[in-house]
Design a protein around this nucleic acid. Structure first.
Lengths: 257, 257
DNA sequence: CGGCCGGTTGACAATGGTCAACAAGCGTGG
DNA sequence: CCACGCTTGTTGACCATTGTCAACCGGCCG
């Protein structure tokens, strides 16, 4: 796949405008929305069925693979996104290449709150990802029409800020072991929220991604994983799955309230 | 001064409701708003003069000294605030007492975006502070009436998220020296934005506060300050003032783009 | 088959933390 | 007015956690 950014001019072949869906009245939803299983989780959930058409009409549907870039830090923020499948990582770089991943996004998450005209971070796909892409100007126009949508965005921003505070506490004050355990607990909590088994979590990201998220090196992450493994707190399964026999034990190691 | 929180039941003697200002029509602004010099910077700036009365009517004006608490992490978020004078610090604690300061607020800043029913962090005054206090429910009511206000809050949240990303990069990936220099540069930038001299900045917080903000110990902060002092990058003046002869040199030490 | 990538492990180093002593400033109370 | 104690900041000696560098393993893909 080409390494063109989704926000840029390329990849036009990779997505289809919502209005493309042939003989469909404006109020009729494109197939992607009709079958979307994270609609109630995402910002779309703020709108009623009959209002959703307006949002859908400005939406393009994007499919990504591998490590396709989505946004680049500092670039004009012309598009905002909804993740409907897969995982996305957000990161910032220092000039010498040091990287800090500021967050992972999953299905239902919104990408593009943290910006003032230009993106505050780069975003790239981790494996297969589906996105809804909204032109920023047009989305802002919809905010005027649907205050409910704006309220929802404010809630999203609020929640992201709460998460950001937690992450600052983790980065600034937790030990390597506490960081790794907190990370696993968070993935487990999210799995639970999605209705998945919180004791068997999917960890799609590499050790180096985890390190860059927790402010550690890959080696330290790896060492802590093996230590948790040998002490029986976790079991590493096939395909990036991790089994946690006793969440209480793991949670005790995070030092969280 | 009593250690009662401003969000709680105490301190009623310390503030005056905006509507107290005697024979004043609802549209007439209380003295505090009329003379407020950060109105255009704060969320109030989103409203026209004639709309401000509605906001003022739900506002209480609070004066704090010393280390008075404003909010406590986990507590019901019944009030939101505007800082109109002084400095406020926001922090989170681990059960064993480790502390992470997630941000400092100054005049014009809004306090209370990062919440979902309960405050995500504790907030306390650093020295003398003046606040405008809004009951959350009533403020939310105003958001329905004034979409401009909601838009402004979304912008505030957006900016805070951008800052939070920067702080994560700092906490996770910068060295002690880079952290301290970044901190000074930020204070200098803010001084410049306020129209103050960016070469002579006011650092009102203690070494321990700075350490808890940067994920360092007081000793490491102190050592880095003296190193910057002996290499001539900064000069420590009276009353917490710091002189920076050459901002370029300092900026080079932050490793920022 | 061979090279590359991701993960693991080991030896060692260094950044930053811990512990302790000390100085300066400041308010309190004799 | 001075002595005292408390807090804050500074500095030093030492140490530990985590980073660095390197080797190695296994899987995957060309």
């Amino acid at each position: 796949m080409a390494a063109t950014k989704v926000g840029g001019k390329g990849m036009e072949a990779n997505f289809h405008a919502g209005s493309d869906s042939s003989f469909c009245k404006p109020t009729c939803l494109p197939e992607q929305c009709a079958t979307c299983n994270v609609r109630h989780l995402s910002i779309c959930g703020a709108l009623e069925e009959d209002e959703l058409g307006a949002l859908a009409s400005i939406t393009s549907f994007v499919e990504l693979t591998g490590r396709d870039p989505i946004t680049a830090e500092g670039e004009a923020a012309d598009y905002l996104f909804n993740v409907t499948r897969g995982a996305v990582e957000l990161y910032k770089l220092l000039p010498d290449g040091r990287r800090q991943i500021t967050g992972f996004l999953f299905a239902g998450d919104f990408l593009g709150i943290a910006l003032n005209d230009s993106y505050a971070y780069s975003a790239e796909a981790v494996g297969g990802v589906s996105l809804c892409r909204f032109p920023r100007k047009k989305l802002e126009g919809l905010l005027d029409r649907f205050p409910k949508l704006e309220r929802r965005l404010l809630n999203v921003a609020s929640n992201e800020l709460v998460q950001a505070q937690d992450q600052m506490l983790l980065l600034g004050r937790k030990t390597a072991k506490e960081k790794v355990c907190s990370f696993l607990v968070r993935l487990s909590d999210r799995a639970g929220e999605r209705g998945d088994d919180p004791n068997t979590i999917y960890v799609p990201m590499s050790r180096s991604d985890i390190g860059d998220y927790l402010g550690l090196t890959t080696e330290t992450v790896s060492r802590n994983f093996t230590q948790l493994k040998t002490t029986g707190v976790i079991r590493l399964l096939e395909g990036g799955m991790v089994h946690i026999p006793d969440l209480g034990t793991l949670r005790d190691l995070t030092e969280e309230s």
